[in-house]
């Protein structure tokens, strides 16, 4: 799990006016996420999000997803894959170092970091929360409520509808599969879906770490 890795980063950066807010997207809350948190004993802020509220508010579609928020509560880098180490490098083909270096650069330099995105680029990258995405979140929320009240059979059609309406959301697939027998209830598995999507090397889009070109760097 990512929690011990973030603790090491936190130890290094916490005196630089920086906080890590890690949020567990787990329908079963403390029951599923708790043991990992207990084992990692993080001193940063580790929250439990049974309703996947953060994914819903920020339009996040996978884990781990990171967003950078400045001192004024403004997003300066939107959702992107946030690996804290290379445990999944064989799967994803992605190195964690460039992202972690960029994070350190931002914590140290703030607005002057070249990894802070311009508003135009931010707007381009933020997923538009259209009505299908919003309805998908509602279907997923209803599915979660049904599951938790002991109605898994009734929950499945709503989880499926969420997956159909927001096909980009791996969270809707993986969380639903984890709550039942994926093969029996969804006729598929996580790895089957990864293959269908083009394989594990395209499962995560790499973070876009091109430095922001500032006005003074631009050629006339």
């Amino acid at each position: 799990m990512d929690l011990p890795g973030w603790q090491a980063i936190y130890e290094r950066l916490k005196d630089k006016n920086f906080e890590i807010v890690s949020v567990a997207q787990d329908t079963n809350g403390v029951k599923d996420a708790g043991p990992w948190i207990t084992a990692a004993r993080p001193t940063y802020t580790a929250l439990i999000d049974e309703k996947h509220l953060v994914s819903k508010l920020y339009n996040m579609v996978n884990v781990p997803t990171g967003a950078w928020i400045d001192e004024h509560g403004k997003i300066v880098r939107p959702n992107e894959v946030a690996f804290v180490d290379d445990r999944f490098k064989n799967f994803s083909g992605l190195d964690s170092a460039p992202y972690l270096n960029a994070l350190t650069d931002w914590v140290e330099k703030g607005d002057k970091s070249s990894y802070v995105m311009s508003e135009d680029r931010l707007r381009e990258k933020l997923t538009v929360n259209n009505s299908d995405i919003a309805l998908a979140a509602a279907e997923f929320g209803l599915g979660e409520h049904l599951y938790k009240s002991g109605h898994l059979t009734e929950a499945i059609p709503h989880f499926k509808e969420a997956q159909r309406l927001n096909p980009k959301s791996w969270n809707y697939k993986r969380q639903a599969y984890a709550l039942s027998d994926a093969k029996r209830d969804y006729g598929t598995t996580f790895m089957d879906e990864v293959q269908k999507a083009g394989g594990s090397r395209v499962y995560y889009s790499p973070p876009d770490l091109r430095p922001e070109v500032t006005q003074k760097d631009k050629k006339p």
Binding site: L3, F18, A24, M60, Q175
Partner: peptide, 12 residues
Amino acid sequence: GRKVLLVTWASW
């Protein structure tokens, strides 16, 4: 007043 890395994870 602080910079925040908001980051999700899951047990599944």
